[in-house]
Design a protein around this nucleic acid. Sequence first.
DNA 1: ATGACAATCAGAGATTGA
Length: 259
Amino acid sequence: MKIATFNINGVKARIGALTDWLDAAQPDVAVLQEIKSVDENFPRDMFEDKGYNVATHGQKGFNGVAILSKFPLEDITRGLPGDDTDEQARWIEATVVGQKAVRICGLYLPNGNPAPGPKFDYKLAWMDRLHTRAQDLLAQEEPALMAGDYNVIPLAEDAARPDAWRKDALFMPESRAAFRRIVNLGFTEAFRARTAGPGHYSFWDYQAGSWDKNDGIRIDHFLLNPQCADLLNDCWIEKQVRAGEKPSDHVPVWVDLAA
DNA sequence: ATGACAATCAGAGATTGA
């Protein structure tokens, strides 16, 4: 089972790029972030025509997550538990059954800038709730993964110019510690389970020629619980997508599971 | 130190992103 995560930066603006990518790459499952669309306006027909089942959790203007799957989507839930007053659409879950059942969680973690400030507080509070949900996924002892745009640069080697990010919410010590605290519960960060060393990025800013200079950061991640990590065949970043027509500022990241 | 770039909503320019 091949699963991709992709922050598309607006489904309406990305219809062409997204269609081309799906046709070429053929993921079994794709978790999407920043659909920037309400559910009613999500072009689900376009994906259903390609054989995907579609689950969305959108809001007006910003944020929004979705799951596309060639397998049926079961037990779909929307919203990260732990705060009934949180109206931002950043979390969706569904179970996908291939050779094995896998619980798929798609997430768009808050950016958190400027830090410090209320947006940074919201980011850290959201990560506390993510920690709680992650504990639950461990307790289930069934294959589960959390994939998406974490808006966290885990280590200096995950940025071309780490010093430029020292005061940014994506690289602040508090953000990185909260990320580690989740990983250290017993999750496997899939990319780092397969590939060591610097120079691997999933985001390049539209500004200042970041792509041309390869001035990127790695912020799109897969965290696998132990039962899911047992199934990991491979994980890679589809870097060349960034060079396409009207690209997102993120590129897809993949896992191949024996599931 | 700032802005550069892009998308959305709205129908200009502010807001958000990273």
